[in-house]
Design a protein around this nucleic acid. Sequence first.
DNA 1: TCAGGATTGTGTATCCTTCTCAATAAAGGC
DNA 2: GCCTTTATTGAGAAGGATACACAATCCTGA
Lengths: 151, 151
Amino acid sequence: MPLYTTDSLKAELNEKGWRLTPQRETILKIFQNLPEGNHLSAEDLFDLLESQGEQISLSTIYRTLKLMARMGILRELELAEGHKHYEINQPYPYHHHHLICVRCNKTIEFKSDAVLKVGTKTSQKEGYHLLDCQLTIHAVCPTCQRSLLPL
Amino acid sequence: MPLYTTDSLKAELNEKGWRLTPQRETILKIFQNLPEGNHLSAEDLFDLLESQGEQISLSTIYRTLKLMARMGILRELELAEGHKHYEINQPYPYHHHHLICVRCNKTIEFKSDAVLKVGTKTSQKEGYHLLDCQLTIHAVCPTCQRSLLPL
DNA sequence: TCAGGATTGTGTATCCTTCTCAATAAAGGC
DNA sequence: GCCTTTATTGAGAAGGATACACAATCCTGA
Ligand SMILES: [Mn+2]
Ligand SMILES: [Mn+2]
Ligand SMILES: [Zn+2]
Ligand SMILES: [Zn+2]
């Protein structure tokens, strides 16, 4: 999971016969400059771009998010029901995991060298090329434990 | 993450003013008897029940899967694009994780006391009530690394 | 500069999941 | 057991995130 620059992104795309487009470059930059702890859905990204004057179609956004996740540049997260969230995939020691309340979706990030090591070794042992390794803890936060709401 | 019986399921449901129905009991038994390594989607479960002469509506299946996941009885897994898979949520030492090829969805299960410990301690430390803790490794399997297919 | 082919944008299609609501049937008190 | 309350079910319709089709665009390498 290297850190990507415009150049290294172009290089990796071209190597496979693909192309670096302004849209892809823009989207990469958005995620690179996103403060840690922020996670964007496709719509979030669309709105964020619009608010910055950039205009990228939803189709392209969906295609780019999936492409970059498949390349290991972005991580695809299941932080809420019904839609995915994305964040930049950072290497050690910035790599982190998520503790999620299944009721209110409050999310806490935490790091663990031990878990990253397990992920690295397991994929290595099986001959898999590692893209992303994420520990997801589903739980009920203190606030929601007290609430009497159903489910 | 205790092991559930019909009685303990009924007790936990009733405690919250909910009810044990034949449908819920049937679905729990399906997952309890599912061989390790098997994961069912909603449709899989619907078809499996039908093949056994049982008839439970898709609506009820979706509701029950979500309910049991929220209770910590089932684990909700993202093993493929577009739909979720479920399996029984087993405690130590049966608890396990998944290594998934993002190209062909081939899945390998593996165990890790270290990861389970991180999950337990992290949720404890934050005061969260733990439901499920799963390390998901996204990677490319040896076969798909060799293939020249796009993406 | 140019040709070839990957990529984009728009509109449309797909399909997993949730919703609505009348009918049914658990739970608990008697 | 019987009854009341109300959670749950089933059938169909609706919703909504994501994928698709295709003509127009524009990267890339020669
Ligand atoms: Mn994060
Ligand atoms: Mn499994
Ligand atoms: Zn919460
Ligand atoms: Zn594969």
